[in-house]
């Protein structure tokens, strides 16, 4: 089912709004939680007015950074369509790590100070679907709401959920969100998993696209989502990546989205198709947020007439890969 990409929203270390994808991204050297290594990371300015203004919302006062990223990205996308019936908007968000900061803080508290000192304020904010609950509450959204979890390919899965809801009339529009927040323990985890062996740069932020059934004059469309090419090891991943690319026409441009150990496998599978090299910030691995940013970049290029069709792969790093075929 062909869907229009009606609007979008971005929160990243380059700033706020889709133009931020193409500007200069702020970077910093941050130490891991163990304190024995520093890594280059791309962090959102958590003190920016675009985020702090959401503190006025009672539900968000104590919420984790990821909630702020999500609501700002979602609001950007919704504000571009002022007459939307928000009661008929569904929301599906993709997460890789979700509410990392509060989960670690809560567990640290009960480990160091004892279980009796656990905070009843922090615990609910550790739950995967809390951020999205804040978003729908604050923005007055009334349609179906799913929080989905997985590796980066979770984004293509979320796109598929949106397709189902729009096909079945469960919603008239669907906001698809991807968001991640950074915590230094993530560096320890990525190091343990060997993900830094291929010069991976960690980031955080959020991206949102609003999908609808109506045609948008001069806009971009989501033509097809192919996902679920699952793998358990690198050998299976090589096969999954090849199968993922099989339905992509040879003359279709492919967005450069692979990171870490996936890069050589992706390059091989893409073969002679034209590659749209990433702009500076889009080389950052912010999991589902990166997937959203890459989809938005494709939509912008299509709307400008730079390309007729763009394939945006979401390679995953531990579960499956998927691909979105976008057109004008």
């Amino acid at each position: 089912m062909k869907l229009s990409i009606v609007s979008s929203g971005v929160v990243c270390s380059g700033g706020f709004g889709s133009d931020a994808l193409f500007g200069k991204w702020a970077e910093a050297n941050v130490s891991n939680a163990t304190g024995n290594r520093e890594h280059r990371v791309f962090l959102v300015n958590r003190e920016a007015g675009e985020l702090r203004r959401w503190e006025k919302e009672a539900r968000l006062r104590r919420a984790s950074p990821i909630s702020y990223y999500l609501i700002e990205a979602a609001n950007q996308a919704l504000e571009q369509v002022p007459h939307l019936d928000r009661k008929r908007v569904g929301v599906v968000s993709a997460f890789f790590l979700g509410c990392l900061v509060y989960t670690i803080r809560f567990f640290h508290q009960i480990t160091e100070e004892g279980r009796r000192s656990a905070s009843p304020i922090i615990f609910p904010e550790t739950v995967f679907n809390s951020p999205l609950s804040h978003v729908v509450s604050a923005l007055g959204i009334g349609g179906p709401v799913y929080s989905q979890v997985g590796d980066t390919s979770c984004w293509s899965n979320a796109l598929r959920t949106a397709q189902v809801w729009l096909m079945r009339g469960t919603a008239d529009h669907v906001l698809v969100l991807g968001a991640e927040e950074f915590d230094p323990h993530q560096l320890d985890a990525f190091h343990a998993g060997g993900l830094f062996r291929q010069s991976l740069c960690v980031g955080e932020g959020a991206g949102a696209i609003l999908l609808g059934r109506e045609e948008v004059e001069g806009g971009a469309s989501l033509l097809e989502v192919n996902d679920g090419f699952s793998f358990g090891d690198k050998k299976q991943a090589a096969r999954a990546v090849q199968r993922c690319m099989e339905n992509v026409p040879l003359d279709c441009a492919v967005m450069d989205t692979a990171s870490g150990w996936m890069r050589p496998l992706a390059a091989h599978a893409i073969g002679n198709r034209r590659i749209l090299l990433h702009v500076e910030g889009l080389s950052v691995e912010a999991s589902t947020a990166s997937c959203a940013w890459n989809t938005i970049r494709a939509a912008i290029m299509l709307a400008k007439g730079d390309e007729e069709k763009i394939a945006v792969p979401f390679w995953g790093l531990s579960q499956q890969c998927g691909i979105a075929l976008c057109g004008r």
Binding site: F128, Y146, Q148, V149, G150, N157, S230, G232, Q236, G322
Partner: peptide, 19 residues
């Protein structure tokens, strides 16, 4: 992945975390 490997199948998987 462990379910897929134990029973020997592949395919799309969607994990919903709506509490």
């Amino acid at each position: 992945r462990e379910i897929q490997q134990y029973f020997g199948f592949v395919g799309p998987s969607m994990i919903v975390a709506n509490a």
